[in-house]
Computed example of a mutant assay.
Amino acid sequence: MRIFTAEDVRRTVPMPAAIDAVREAFRELRAGAFVLPPRQVFGDGAVLVMSAYHAPTRTAVVKKIGIDLSRDPAIRATLIWTGSEQIVADGTSITTLRTGAVVGVATDLLAPRDAARLTLIGTGAQAADQVRAVLAVRPIAETTVCGRDPDRAKRLAGSLAEEFPEVKFAVSADLPEAIATPDIVCCATSTSTPLFAAEDLPERVHVNAIGSFRPIMRELPHDLLTTASVVLVDQVEAALEESGEVIEAVDSGALPRESLVELGEALETPPQPTGRTVFKSVGVGPQDWSVANLLSQS
């Protein structure tokens, strides 16, 4: 058995490698290479169990996640990967890394090629990897960090500025102002009510949302989903089980289910986005498998 701590995961799998691995995993998911059981949910979402089996290599991954929104980090997880050997790894670091990576894949598909301005909403454990992923695929020059706690936002911006000295980082407490001009917006919060109004966004912008993971949670406004030129999801079935904003829009009839585009499909036939675009992720097992697979090869 090999054991990987959070530090081991970070040292072994840099963000660009994670993006490439997650991209390939979604291509394989589209091609039918994975057996993907439904996510198990216990205690009204307090404990989640995710798994995936990769048929071509006969390898599997299982991740147990404990979620408590009152603590920091809210997510604590352990991952087990089985193949020719067994790996036990810190699932918290893998979760933030692979969630950032899938945002990198989606941003690379949908965001303007010349995107230079990013706004990040949220300062929790997932936030930094959202920035790392976007910076890996777009020439971002300016990033604005918004959060409920100004001190946390300043600390996060300061830490990221040290990591990416070529990027200008700023902190804003005025959310409508912060989302008025960016090319890309990343939402990583646990809110149950939409963070902003669609009318506050530029006419040309890509929005990623990864924070809400229960049907009662919503980061995005209804009219953004119903007017976006592309609404991309990691998996339609998962989104309709767990994404509050997608469930509401589809159930209302304003967003036809068939208009949702799965990431694997978009990689096969890239969409031609115009105006505003959205990527909503709730996470699927092949993302975890892809990072664990890289660990197994190290």
Rank of each mutant, 00 (worst) to 15 (best):
V49F: 11
A52N: 07
L48G: 06
A74P: 10
S93N: 00
G32S: 03
I80C: 09
R76V: 05
P56E: 08
D68Q: 09
K64C: 05
T57W: 01
R30M: 06
S70L: 07
R76W: 03
R76L: 12
I80F: 03
G91T: 06
G91E: 01
I67M: 09
I94G: 03
I67A: 11
I94L: 12
T92F: 10
I87L: 14
A55F: 03
L69Q: 07
L79N: 04
V61F: 08
A74C: 12
R71K: 14
S70Q: 12
A52R: 08
R76K: 12
T82N: 11
G66Q: 11
M50H: 09
V41M: 00
I75A: 08
I87S: 04
D72L: 15
V35P: 00
L79H: 05
P73H: 08
T92N: 08
V88S: 06
G32F: 02
H54V: 10
V88W: 02
A89T: 05
A74L: 07
V35C: 09
R76H: 14
A55L: 14
I87P: 03
S93Y: 02
A31N: 14
G43I: 03
P38R: 13
I65Q: 04
A89H: 07
I87K: 04
L48T: 10
Q40T: 14
R30G: 09
I80L: 12
G43A: 07
D44E: 15
I65L: 11
Q40R: 14
A55G: 06
W81K: 05
V62K: 06
S93D: 08
D72N: 15
T82L: 13
A74K: 14
S93M: 11
A89V: 04
A46E: 13
P56C: 07
P73A: 08
P37Y: 03
P73V: 08
S51L: 00
V62S: 09
V61M: 10
I65G: 01
G43C: 07
A33K: 13
A31P: 03
G83M: 01
G91K: 02
Q40W: 04
T59Q: 12
K64W: 08
R71G: 01
A46M: 07
P56I: 09
L79P: 03
A33E: 14
M50V: 07
L48P: 04
R30V: 04
V35H: 12
V47M: 13
T59V: 00
S70F: 01
T57R: 14
V41L: 00
H54D: 06
A55E: 12
W81P: 00
L79I: 11
F42D: 09
H54G: 04
W81M: 04
A52E: 06
V61I: 15
S93R: 03
G83C: 02
A31H: 08
L48A: 05
P38N: 11
P73I: 10
G43N: 10
S70T: 15
A77R: 05
I75N: 13
D68G: 05
A74G: 11
A31F: 06
A33L: 12
T57F: 01
